[in-house]
Design a protein around this nucleic acid. Structure first.
Lengths: 194, 194
DNA sequence: CCGGTTACGAAACGATAATTCTGTTACCAA
DNA sequence: TTGGTAACAGAATTATCGTTTCGTAACCGG
């Protein structure tokens, strides 16, 4: 009945996510977004209401797809244990070694860049922290039960610790610090749990 | 011989530092800077060449005054030991408890927000990381020598670890995570060194 | 008191970028 | 084929903000 879109809706979010992560919200223009996503400026406004709306949509998709279904999935899985945590950290170290600056997490970037107290963004960040905390609690709880961790391990405290380690990694990745430094950091963090 | 300035040069940097930390570089306007610092727009341009120049001057002053002469001084002092590190972390926890969002470090914010590879900013960030590393190495070295730390403690690795802890704290401070979470994080990090 | 130097204040400029508008084009159901 | 819907392209609009300019005011040595 009508002219079909010449772009893929999912692709828009993926490409936008890339741009926002690389350049940040402020430095990314609507023209760039239109050019990179393949959608027309008009369509972006029609679909998302504006730059902010597009950003929020991107952030939410990033949280569910990349975080929950992606990197965090192995830790959220039932029965995930210490070996999964080890693999998780090894993968992160691998990322650090590859030297990709835009490998850092879009939500962590948002955390650092949020100016005002935007309730929408704040909500996504909070959801992110909750998921991460849940994942670590899961792993630590299983490890404790399996005897892989100290019997006196404080689950809540250690989860908060690991969450902070993840946040620290994000900043480390944006810094001029070398990959060895970051590997040292991660291995020391993980070792402290044993 | 000429009309005297109606503002204090040092004050300009302090106030600018506050604004930049709170809102970030992009979101802070020259008008705000002029209004807050008390200097006229004209004078800001005359003295610093522009927004970027003012930011760089602010960053450098922040590094020397607030970081080197301020928070890091006790750890850089000759003979600084574990008890100084403990106090350092306690102070940070205290900051977290006070709930001041703008307590996070301007240089860490810059790290996260740097878009392009500005050599000027990159230099300051690198200097910051070096100072922090040096401080932690100093403390850890002294602690090891005094027998307060394990004899097999890897100084370089542990310093990289503590640096990451500091970075993580900065992100934690900007997040909606509560103060208890952050206290748990810090105490777990410190405990892991024993 | 005067002249020169410097800072102030406000208005103006120019560029960038978000948003809106308008005319045109592509599809598809009837 | 045709009419209607929806997307496209790009120009126009508007707002924001960094930067510059300019006339005025304040200070101080002589």
């Amino acid at each position: 009945m009508a002219r079909p879109r010449t772009f893929d809706c999912d692709e828009v979010i993926v490409k936008a996510s890339y741009l926002f992560t690389r350049q940040g919200f402020a430095a990314t223009t609507m023209d760039q977004l239109a050019a990179t996503t393949g959608a027309s400026l008009h369509s972006l406004y029609a679909d998302y209401g504006g730059k902010k709306g597009l950003f929020e949509a991107t952030l939410k998709t990033y949280l569910t797809e990349d975080i929950i279904r992606g990197v965090m999935a192995p830790l959220l899985a039932e029965g995930a244990g210490f070996e999964d945590l080890q693999r998780f950290f090894d993968d992160l170290a691998q990322v650090a070694k590859s030297g990709e600056r835009d490998a850092s997490c879009l939500i962590c970037l948002t955390m650092m860049r949020m100016d005002d107290d935007d309730p929408e963004l704040r909500g996504v960040v909070q959801a992110y922290l909750q998921i991460v905390d849940q994942a670590f609690r899961n792993v630590l709880g299983n490890a404790k039960q399996a005897g892989a961790a100290r019997a006196d391990l404080d689950i809540a405290k250690s989860a908060a610790f690991l969450t902070g380690i993840l946040l620290g990694l994000n900043l480390y990745l944006r810094s001029p610090a070398g990959a060895e430094r970051i590997e040292d950091y991660l291995s020391a963090a993980l070792a402290s749990l044993h």
